[in-house]
């Protein structure tokens, strides 16, 4: 599932480690989500949406099902 996490992170000039710390996950998790290797759980998707003040569907695109 494609997502715009990297773009949103770049807009705020946050590092992956910083986003990981704010979300309470490892940096590898953020990296894996950004590279579409891993789809986050629903609670984590909500946490990401809350962190970037967007709706989940604005960040994650369920139509692009490649993984």
């Amino acid at each position: 599932m494609k997502n715009s996490l990297r773009v949103l992170r770049a807009e705020r000039r946050w590092s992956q480690a910083e986003v990981a710390e704010r979300l309470g996950v490892s940096r590898q998790t953020v990296n894996a989500i950004e590279t579409s290797r891993y789809d986050p759980s629903l609670p984590l998707a909500f946490a990401i949406a809350r962190l970037f003040e967007r709706r989940i569907e604005d960040i994650f695109d369920p139509e692009s099902g490649d993984k």
Partner: peptide, 9 residues
């Protein structure tokens, strides 16, 4: 500087 690009682990 905070990295905004992909950071390989």
């Amino acid at each position: 500087e905070p990295s905004t690009v992909e950071e390989p682990i």
